[in-house]
């Protein structure tokens, strides 16, 4: 088996006086989708933000693509090949959709073929290309947020709850887009509360509790074991 694309070892993160991550160990296999699951407030978002560098790890190491990135500034981690879709989507509301996408292309002008592919994946982007991103609906903003991360090829995508609050039609678009991304060979680490989506997309799963990874395995294994789900997360996927 190939070396994981991302490896967290004993990562600890504090936010103000709160000790949020407590020795997180996590491997993200290359070219697959890893779902980061768990109850609210167990440290899933903090884990993603620590990987991209918005929170600095107090202890432990983060290895990406064979390189230690634990102390790298945020922009260097992004340029190393990590795309980030935050929970609040992080779109630039005062910029147009086009301007958001231009910014996302960090290595040069936005590639026309890539843009057309994104239009096919997220048709509303074409419709609202010249509109202020702040005027988009919640689902369209989420599409823009993910499309922005996909504007250039990245080795790893960190995606925080992309389906939160979205209508079923939009969720199916998201799932399809992320499948296409995976088909292109990208690795994805995704926080997701919607178990149906997690089950549909995930190859691997890691479950967090109280700032630690408490279980790792295949998504199929977790999806098929209601008792395990109850024990790890307090409810079963079948309830959803």
């Amino acid at each position: 088996m190939s070396e994981p694309v991302l490896k967290l070892k004993g990562v600890e993160t504090d936010i103000a006086q709160y000790h949020i991550l407590k020795k997180v160990d996590l491997d993200v296999p290359r070219g697959s989708v890893t779902m980061l699951l768990g109850r609210n407030g167990v440290g899933k978002t903090t884990t993603l933000r620590t990987i991209i560098g918005h929170w600095q790890a107090r202890a432990g190491s983060i290895t990406f693509d064979g390189n230690d990135i634990t102390r790298l500034p945020v922009p260097d981690r992004a340029r190393a090949g990590i795309g980030f879709v935050p929970e609040d989507m992080g779109i630039f509301a005062d910029l147009t959709v086009e301007e958001n996408m231009i910014l996302a292309a960090i290595s040069g002008p936005l590639d026309a073929a890539r843009r057309d592919w994104l239009f096919s994946v997220f048709p509303p982007l074409r419709t609202f290309w010249n509109a202020a991103a702040g005027n988009l609906s919640g689902g369209q903003k989420q599409m823009l947020s993910i499309a922005r991360a996909m504007a250039e090829r990245r080795t790893l995508y960190l995606i925080d709850e992309p389906t939160k609050g979205l209508a079923p039609a939009i969720i199916s678009t998201m799932v399809g887009a992320l499948r296409e991304l995976k088909a292109q060979g990208a690795s994805i680490l995704m926080v997701e509360q919607n178990f149906a989506v997690a089950k549909a997309l995930g190859d691997h799963a890691a479950v967090m509790d109280d700032g630690r990874i408490v279980w790792t395995g295949s998504m199929a294994e977790l999806a098929n074991d209601a008792t395990l789900q109850e024990r790890l997360m307090g409810l079963s996927m079948e309830m959803q």
Binding site: I52, H54, P73, V74, P75, A78, R79, F84, P86, G90, I91, F92, A93, D94, L95, E99, N100, L103, A104, I106, R148
Partner: peptide, 17 residues
């Protein structure tokens, strides 16, 4: 313009703000 609005996200895209 983007940095004024959300500097954290600009950095996450790869720009040294």
């Amino acid at each position: 313009r983007a940095g004024v609005e959300n500097g954290e996200m600009v950095e996450a895209l790869g720009y040294r703000l």
